[in-house]
Amino acid sequence: MASALRSIKSLAPLLDRVLVQRVKADAKTAGGIFLPESAQKELNQANVLAVGPGALDKKGNRLPMGVSTGDKVLIPQYGGSPFKVGEEEYSLFRDSEILAKINE
């Protein structure tokens, strides 16, 4: 890759892709004990940062996306296309791969 992304805001997902960032696990237990990074479990929750315009059906009509920017979602443990911008990690998933939307 000749040039690295300078900012995640310059990335716009295409078709039915969804840009997410996993929610970081707590570094400390409820009792106040700090956990080392190796003991922290990766969460399946993520925040939606950007969504594509939607896939096209056979007639050329746009299919609506199931999530929108700012939603909290449940994503699969594995899959998607992970990448880094600086020290931050992000993933691109298809709209159909997202397991659920978390309503709070």
Rank of each mutant, 00 (worst) to 15 (best):
N44P: 06
R6L: 03
A46I: 06
Y78C: 04
L43Q: 12
L63A: 05
F83W: 09
E37H: 08
A30G: 03
L11K: 02
V18W: 03
F34Y: 12
G66I: 01
E104I: 07
F34V: 15
G79A: 05
G79K: 05
L15R: 08
G66C: 01
K41L: 03
Q21E: 12
A46R: 05
K24P: 00
F83G: 04
L56N: 09
A50T: 02
A46G: 03
S91T: 09
L14N: 05
Y78E: 12
E89C: 08
L99E: 15
P64R: 05
N103R: 12
K101L: 13
A4H: 05
S91P: 00
G80N: 08
R17W: 06
G60A: 04
A50G: 03
L74F: 04
A39V: 08
L56F: 14
A2G: 12
K84T: 12
G86E: 07
K28S: 07
L49T: 04
A50K: 11
G80L: 09
N103F: 09
G80C: 09
V67Y: 01
V48G: 01
G86T: 11
D57S: 10
P36L: 10
R94G: 07
D16C: 03
S96V: 08
F34L: 14
F83Y: 14
N61Y: 13
K24E: 14
L43G: 02
E97V: 03
L5S: 10
Q21Y: 01
V85W: 05
A55L: 07
V23K: 12
L15Y: 08
Q77V: 02
L99D: 08
R6T: 04
P64F: 00
G66L: 00
A46T: 03
R94P: 02
G60V: 05
A25L: 00
V48T: 01
Y90F: 15
G60N: 03
L49S: 04
K24R: 14
R22A: 07
S7V: 11
L99K: 13
Y78S: 11
N61F: 13
N47S: 11
P82E: 09
T69C: 15
G54V: 05
A100Q: 15
G31E: 14
R62G: 00
K72V: 14
S91K: 13
L63P: 02
M1A: 13
G66R: 01
M65H: 01
D57W: 10
L5E: 06
K59S: 11
P76N: 13
F34N: 10
K28D: 00
A100W: 10
Y78L: 12
T69A: 15
I8D: 01
